[in-house]
Nucleic acid binder design. Structure first.
Lengths: 200, 200, 200, 200
DNA sequence: TATGAATGAGTCTTCATTCAT
DNA sequence: AATGAATGAAGACTCATTCAT
């Protein structure tokens, strides 16, 4: 009957953030499939329509939740190597490990978004292209090259693309069991191939 | 009250095939997203219910359309290189081209799997085909290595995995336009990286 | 492509009769629930549309099949007693037995027709009110009364209605397990009650 | 774009109750046959989807409407006679009247059970009520017999079963209009038959 | 007369969005 | 700002009926 502040401010959190956080948790546990606005509201303990006071539509909320999910996950994966420190091989190893873990966690969320292209557009609009692993990998490689620890004329962008692609493929191997490589190469072999190639 | 031979036989084509073809075109242009039964019927110029005279499900129709789409495109992909002939770089280039085109066709299947997991079942053949290229790539690389045109101790399995992964990723870049790399490396750069690595 | 005589006349039977017979068998085994025209046609081995060459619509076919079902069933239940022969009690016993068996067989067919009132209207139109058990029971009782084996002023119509009702109720007791009498009286008791009443 | 309080609160009635009442009226006038979700909504003057804000199913709504219909009518049925008071004939008359009215109300349930067996589940209460009258009738008869107002050795259970059956049959005569007896006996005749039988 | 592919209105159900309070 | 009941346009699927052959 009367406006309630209820759950929204029990802990001084804005409803905006509460909704994003709730949706994020739902994404983390069940993906975005079957995630209805009513369900989100119910889990957040707020009214159905409150969403539209803070977001233009459901897509915006989901996109933000997705972004938050990626950020959160990435933040929990630990540190990435510093250029110039350790060995390049070891550092690439760490990057690969990081990338594989990241994609494994994020995949379910994105997978079910395939049918809701609008969300991905929003995601693209609100996400600033920095700080994500792919960019950090490229940056890392470029700095190592600048330091002389990689060949000056080497194709670091291509190498990054190959590594990122490998992560994607390993994720798809889980989604589509039959498409995966039967006998996946070891991380060491991957790093070795990226570093020294296969030419004589 | 209504035409009986309708569009189906305007060109001597069965309605079954007309529907598959229509769905195939829709997949090719817009993916499986938002592809409703009614829309398919409308685009085929037939009644809503026809679908169920020829397919048990919407899923069956979609799966068949997908399959047909893969077959059609695959037939246009041309030959893969023979080990020992031409240059290794050129041959890898050709393999990459083939793989990219192949995965581009497979992508739509990925989309529909999110909400229609049943499609995966009937789509088994596709994975075999996708696997087929991977195996041919590995075989090719191993034969080139045996011929001495690749380094003896090189990680050809890892190199193949990287290339396959790159194809997957490039496909996802189309499915999720905003998540892809802003400036994808050239095929030449990819081949260069695979051949010579990035180490000094 | 060309008109077929096929199954219809394999045994010199008209399609009309084949369809009625097929529908009748379906009613006997599964009731009328979910009995689609396509299914009838398929089981009769004829084309979907042939029905409309012999019946104005599905309802007419089903009504005729129902009628046939009742006739057939009734014919298989054996003889009813002849007035004046045996004892009245024994004869009533036989009538009751007959009625219970009849209703037990017919019930499933009628039950699922409850939602298709059109069929019952047709049934009423085409069924001539004679030969059915209820009428034979009334006739029997009146003749016994005329013969002096029942009280002259007795309410034989009412007695018949009570007996018929008892058969209905015993059928419903099977359809709705919870509504049936927990401890149904014996046929002997029923006959006794009908014959001598309960008044002092 | 559309009214928000709509019909629901025109008279201070909840939409839940409005829907039940609307469905109840439809049952009372036309039975459950052809009672579509859309038709219910249209007659209630509300949107198609409202139903699912208040009931899990169409079945739940129908079951509740049925139940309400039974309750309402049953409340109007009045008292049953007390053993030893009045005449037995008059009392049986009253019992018969009560039973007929009661079963008349139960009839629609019978119809809906054909295609919606799930309704039976939620309808358990009704059978208890129906059983209730039967038990009261048996009890009544036994007490009258104990009082000496019925023959000591009379089959009161059988008599009760006949009367209950008669009620069932009279209900079926309404559900299946064309199958009923063309010339139903009067209540007096029924009572007379039950009291004095038909034997000489 | 028989065929059977095509029709399309109709079924129940879901869910993002609105708006009077 | 918050509420949450009401909205209504989809969604996939069914099936009695028609009609060119």
């Amino acid at each position: 009957m009367s406006p309630r502040k209820a759950a929204a401010q029990r802990d001084g959190q804005s409803l905006h953030d509460l909704l994003v956080e709730t949706a994020q948790k739902m994404i983390a546990t069940h993906g975005t499939t079957g995630m209805t606005v009513r369900e989100i509201a119910r889990m957040a303990g707020v009214a159905d329509g409150v969403l539209y006071n803070h977001f233009s539509d459901k897509e915006e909320l989901v996109a933000r939740a997705l972004l938050e999910h990626v950020r959160t996950t990435e933040a929990e994966l630990g540190e990435l190597p510093v250029p110039g420190e350790g060995t390049v091989a070891g550092n690439l190893h760490r990057h690969l490990e990081f990338g594989l873990a990241l994609h494994k966690v994020i995949a379910p969320a994105f997978r079910s978004l395939a049918t809701q292209p609008g969300v991905l557009e929003r995601f693209g609009e609100i996400s600033e292209r920095s700080g994500y692993w792919r960019d950090r990998l490229v940056t890392y490689l470029k700095e190592e090259r600048a330091l002389g620890r990689l060949r000056q004329e080497s194709e670091v962008d291509a190498a990054a693309a190959l590594l990122v692609g490998y992560c994607h493929a390993s994720v798809m191997a889980e989604v589509f069991p039959h498409t995966g490589p039967l006998d996946p190469p070891s991380a060491d072999a991957i790093v070795e191939a990226v570093l020294h190639g296969i030419a004589p």
